[in-house]
Design a binder for these strands. Structure first.
Length: 345
RNA sequence: CCGCCCUUAGCUCAGACUGGUAGAGCAGUCGACUGUAGAUCGACUUGCCCCCCGUUCAAAUCGGGGAGGGCGGACCA
């Protein structure tokens, strides 16, 4: 596989690359550059996470060395989103869910290295470096970096300003060439690019995935159940959530349903070598078949494809895509019960 | 260590002075209208009023104690 092909795989479906030239050089210079993404094990994982995880399959295919950090300490530092004594259980659940999603994306979870934050973040060397970073960073700088990630509050905790420093240091500790994450992570990684050269590590190339719009017409929110599909939602629930979604006819911008189709369904169908079939009643013109997302979007924009027909097709595809994850998680209900005792008694 | 303020629906808060077992907005649910959803209209739901003790016929409301949170001061030989 040549560099152009690898570059294409690595950057497809990405929201932004900082900087593309650096990435090209990296791919040219290294056979297997390292990329990492971190997840703080807080709330239950949902389909939004799938967007970022799905791409790990592309990375593997492009011969990248992929590391997933389960950032347990971060989950607690961020306004105690996860109570300290649930970190073990949630870490275990996250790894299982992530492996399930990798598998659903058509890759082998064994090809990915999983690392747990506290396994190295308490080391002497790491701690000292962190204190040095703290000494050279203003509160305002750190807060600005983390503002899209850390929960905002009238009385912010110190944890929230340590958070982006640690995340920057993680890039170094994991020896990552590429820092990958949702576009909400941009602020933190721009801080990393500023700081890391002073701390003995190259500026990471940053690769950001889009954050999918929610199903209710605003941002997807993990606390708003109707705005997202959960990995453990049964097919009926998935279909009714899609069916209830905000989806104006012909409107392509910020349309959650279309984004699901674009970033989740089509990439996976591509993997399966399948096309997207819309079953449509004869009175409205009969079935439609799409090979590429762009064709579907064009039809939707021209109002040839009605939202109701799009929804019913999307609902069943999404359900099918998450099915392996759903099975994996529901067959281990004790994992969820331990990680989220309040919602899974 | 000292002082002051806050804690009521999922969320933001009103009600406390002048005791009579709770309200608004948002959110949510359900209908109507749309070949979807939204918008709009109509209806509906929601509560250990932070905890304990006391006063009283009666306490979200008054008194005492406690917990959690916030703000400020003092200390800086």
């Amino acid at each position: 596989m040549d560099t152009a092909e690898r570059l294409d795989l690595v950057t497809q479906y990405a929201e932004e690359v900082i900087e593309e030239d650096e990435l090209r050089e990296l791919l040219e210079a290294e056979d297997d550059p390292s990329v990492y993404i971190g997840y703080a094990p807080t709330g239950e994982m949902h389909i939004g996470h799938f967007t970022t995880i799905r791409k790990l399959a592309d990375f593997l295919q492009a011969d990248l060395d992929v590391t997933v950090l389960v950032a347990d300490l971060h989950a607690h530092l961020d306004d105690e989103k996860s109570p300290f004594d649930l970190l073990d259980a949630r870490t275990e659940y996250y790894q299982e869910a992530i492996e399930g999603m990798v598998e659903a994306a058509g890759a082998n979870p064994d090809d990915i290295s999983f690392v747990r934050g506290m396994d190295y973040q308490l080391d002497e060397e790491y701690s000292l470096e962190l204190y040095r970073m703290a000494a050279e960073t203003t509160l305002a700088r750190s807060q600005r970096a983390a503002s899209e990630v850390v929960r905002e509050s009238e009385s912010p905790n110190l944890g929230g300003v340590i958070y982006p420093l640690m995340q920057s240091l993680d890039v170094k500790s994991l020896d990552a060439d590429i820092a990958y994450g949702g576009i909400d992570q941009r602020g933190i990684y721009m801080l990393s690019r500023e700081m890391l050269p002073e701390h003995g590590h190259d500026k990471p190339v940053c690769l950001f995935a889009p954050l999918l719009a929610g199903l209710t017409g605003d941002k997807m929110s993990s606390s708003k159940d109707a705005s997202k599909v959960n990995l453990t939602d049964d097919p009926d629930t998935v279909e009714s959530k899609i069916d209830d979604a905000y989806c104006p006819m012909g409107e392509v911008e910020d349309n959650g349903v279309l984004e699901y189709v674009r970033y989740l369904v089509f990439p996976v169908l591509d993997e399966w070598d399948d096309s997207f079939v819309v079953e449509r009643p004869e009175q409205y013109g009969g079935d439609l078949v799409y090979e590429r997302y762009e064709e579907l979007e064009a039809d939707f924009e021209s109002e040839e494809l009605h939202p109701a027909d799009l929804k019913s097709a999307t609902g069943s595809y999404i359900s099918e895509v998450i099915d392996p994850v759903r099975k994996r998680l529901t067959s281990q209900s004790d994992l969820l019960a331990k990680a989220y005792p309040e919602s899974h008694e």
